[in-house]
C-alpha cells in the first residue's frame, strides 16, 4: 500500500506567510536554497511570457498584412505581393495525421505495456524495455528517411487494398489509384511508430503502480487475468494512460522532419487521406523558413502560435477528462 500513498495528492503546501512568519534562526543554506528555487520558478514564468509575447507580436504583424483569410485560406504564399496565406490545410493535416497516429499507437502501446507487466516472463521484460527505449533514441530525420525510402514504397500495396475494398468510405478512396502513398495516412503511421515508445513507457510505469491489493481483490473474486486487468488495472491506470497519450499526441502534433520527408506537401485539403498532399504546421514551417522574407517569417510564426494554442487545448482537455472522475481514480484509495 506504500504505492497508493505515493500516488495520493500531495498535502496542501504550507502557505508562504506561515513559513516565513515564524521568526527564529535563519540559516544561510536555507536562504540560498529558497532563493535559488524561487529564482527558478520566476525564470520559468519570465520565459513563458517572453515566448508568448514574441509569438503574439510577430503573429499579429503578419496576420494584419494577410490578404487572404488566415483561418480559411488554403494557400501559403507569404512571400508574394500581396501576401496570401492561411492555415486551413495545415490545421487539417496536423490534426488528421495526429489522430491517425493516436488511433494506431495508443492501443498497441497499452497492449505492449500490459504484456510487459502482466504476461511476459520476467527475463523477456528487460530486453523488450531496452528495444522500446532504442525506438525512442532514433533521431526523427532517420525515421523520415526510413519512411520515405522504405515505408512509402512498401505501403503501396496496403494503400491499393484500402482503396479497393474500403474506398466506399470516402476516407480511403484514392482519387488517382496507384499514386505513391506520400500522404497523411503514411505520415500518421510513421508518427505512430515515433510516439509509441513514450506512450508505452509512461503507460507501463503507471500500470506498475497499480497496488497489488487491487489486483488481488479481483483475483480472489475469481477473475481471470483479463478480467483482473479490466476490473482493477485499467481503471486505476486510466488517467495515467490518458496523460501518456497526450504526451504522445504533443509529440505527433509538433513532429517536423519525419513529416517533411514523407509527405509531398501541397495546398490541397481533402477528406481522401490516401491522396498525396496536405501539410502540417511544423513541416510547413521547416520547409518555408529558409526562403522566407521578413513577413514570411512572421506568417510562419503565426502558424506556430496556432500549433502552440492547439497543444495547450489538448493538454487542457486531458486535464478535464482526468479531473472529471477524480473521486473514482483510485488515487484516494
Amino acid at each position: 500500500m506504500e504505492i497508493t500513498k505515493e500516488t495520493a495528492p500531495p498535502p496542501p503546501a504550507v502557505p508562504a506567510a506561515a513559513a516565513h512568519g515564524r521568526r527564529g534562526v535563519t540559516r544561510p543554506g536555507d536562504r540560498i536554497f529558497s532563493g535559488l528555487s524561487r529564482g527558478s520558478g520566476i525564470l520559468l514564468l519570465v520565459l513563458m511570457a517572453a515566448i508568448a509575447v514574441f509569438l503574439t507580436v510577430r503573429a499579429a504583424n503578419a496576420i494584419s498584412q494577410d490578404h487572404g483569410n488566415f483561418l480559411t485560406t488554403f494557400e501559403w504564399d507569404a512571400n508574394t505581393t500581396p501576401p496570401v496565406f492561411g492555415i486551413a490545410v495545415l490545421l487539417y493535416g496536423t490534426l488528421v495525421s495526429s489522430v491517425i497516429a493516436m488511433a494506431i499507437a495508443v492501443p498497441i502501446a497499452v497492449g505492449i505495456a500490459l504484456f510487459m507487466t502482466h504476461y511476459a516472463p520476467r527475463r523477456l521484460g528487460g530486453p523488450l524495455a531496452y528495444v522500446i527505449d532504442l525506438l525512442a533514441a532514433v533521431p526523427s530525420i532517420v525515421y523520415g528517411l526510413w519512411g520515405a525510402l522504405f515505408l512509402v514504397p512498401h505501403l503501396q500495396g496496403l494503400t491499393s487494398w484500402l482503396d479497393q475494398y474500403l474506398g466506399w468510405t470516402v476516407i480511403f478512396d484514392q482519387s488517382n489509384p496507384g499514386t505513391a502513398p506520400r500522404n497523411l495516412f503514411t505520415a500518421g503511421i510513421l508518427l505512430a511508430i515515433m510516439i509509441l515508445p513514450i506512450i508505452t513507457n509512461v503507460s507501463r510505469e503507471v500500470i506498475r503502480q497499480v497496488p497489488a491489493a487491487h489486483e488481488e481483490a479481483a483475483l480472489a473474486l475469481g477473475a481471470t487475468r483479463w478480467e483482473t486487468i479490466r476490473m482493477s488495472v485499467l481503471p486505476f491506470a486510466r488517467s495515467g494512460i490518458i496523460s501518456a497519450s497526450m504526451l504522445g499526441l504533443g509529440r505527433a502534433l509538433g513532429e517536423t522532419m519525419a513529416v517533411v520527408t514523407v509527405l509531398s506537401s501541397s495546398d490541397k485539403l481533402t477528406a481522401h487521406i490516401l491522396d498525396p498532399g496536405g501539410g502540417t504546421f511544423a513541416a510547413n514551417i521547416a520547409s518555408h523558413f529558409g526562403e522566407a522574407t521578413s513577413l514570411g517569417r512572421d506568417a510562419l510564426i503565426a502558424s506556430g502560435l496556432v500549433l502552440f494554442v492547439i497543444t495547450l487545448l489538448v493538454n487542457g482537455a486531458a486535464r478535464v477528462i482526468i479531473a472529471r472522475r477524480k473521486e473514482y481514480s483510485g488515487a484516494n484509495a
Binding site: 479481483a218 483475483l219 480472489a220 475469481g222 476490473m231 481503471p235 472522475r325 483510485g330
Partner: peptide, 28 residues
Amino acid sequence: VAVRRTVGMVFQRPNPFPTMSIFDNVAA
C-alpha cells in the same frame, strides 16, 4: 479461477475497487 469463485477471501487492508461505486463493488 473456478476455485476462487467458491472460496472467498477478505484481505488485511480493505481493498474495495476504487473506481467502482458501492453497488458495483458488491455486484463485481
